[in-house]
Amino acid sequence: MLTTLEVFTTVVVGLMVGVEFSVAFVINRILDALPEDSGQLGRAHGGRMLGALMPFWYIGSLILVALWAVAGGDSHGAGLVVTAGALLLLSVIMSLLLLVPINNRNKQWTPENRPADWKQQLKRWDRFHYIRIAVIIAAFTLLVTALA
């Protein structure tokens, strides 16, 4: 049963990393290459869509890692799992404090109501997102190492 939890948790976190990596290095680059302000409108739609899913994915991943840490507390990789959990908790805190506020504003923007600094705000979101990706990649790496 523990092995199933370990593998399932690793897959769930790995998929989350893949989605976030894709957003940063594929989807946003495609959107930013669109003419005029189309990219911001695409990001707003993506923010609404992924904004509804990602809180469950992040919290669910954190819960799965916590369950793994408790169930496998006496295993050789327990410290790695606990550290991965701490990194995932950091990613949730980063999301709530840094990324979600910008995303919530962006979801509401239209060509008529965007602030003058909308491009700078999206660039700021991107910078925070790159840091969050590094954090969740580190967590994923620790989980894979604990699994091995």
Rank of each mutant, 00 (worst) to 15 (best):
L2C: 12
T3F: 15
T4Y: 13
E6T: 15
E6C: 08
F8Y: 02
F8L: 10
F8H: 03
T9S: 03
V11L: 04
V11H: 02
V12Y: 01
V12E: 01
V13Y: 00
L15C: 05
V17F: 00
V17Y: 05
V26G: 04
I30K: 10
I30D: 07
L31R: 13
L31T: 12
D32M: 07
A33Q: 12
L34R: 14
L34A: 12
D37G: 09
G39Y: 06
L41F: 05
L41Y: 01
H45Q: 11
H45P: 03
G47E: 07
R48E: 02
M49L: 14
M49N: 10
L50R: 06
A52G: 14
A52N: 06
A52D: 03
L53K: 03
P55Y: 11
F56V: 01
Y58E: 07
G60M: 02
G60K: 03
S61Y: 00
I63R: 06
L64P: 01
V65W: 08
A66S: 13
L67A: 07
A69F: 04
G72E: 07
G72P: 08
H76T: 10
G77F: 11
A78D: 12
L80P: 14
T83D: 15
T83G: 15
G85L: 13
L87E: 04
L87M: 12
L87I: 10
L88G: 01
L89S: 09
L89M: 10
L90A: 13
V92D: 09
V92M: 11
I93C: 06
M94C: 08
M94E: 14
S95K: 07
P101D: 10
I102F: 12
N104S: 09
R105Q: 13
R105A: 09
N106G: 09
W109A: 02
W109I: 04
E112H: 02
E112W: 00
E112Q: 08
N113A: 00
N113K: 02
N113R: 00
R114P: 08
R114K: 11
A116L: 09
D117A: 08
D117H: 14
Q121I: 02
Q121C: 05
L122E: 11
L122Q: 13
R124I: 04
R124H: 08
F128Q: 00
F128R: 00
Y130L: 13
I131D: 02
I131C: 01
R132I: 00
I133E: 02
I133L: 07
A134S: 10
I137E: 05
T141I: 12
L142G: 06
L143E: 11
V144G: 11
V144T: 13
A146C: 09
A146K: 12
A148R: 12
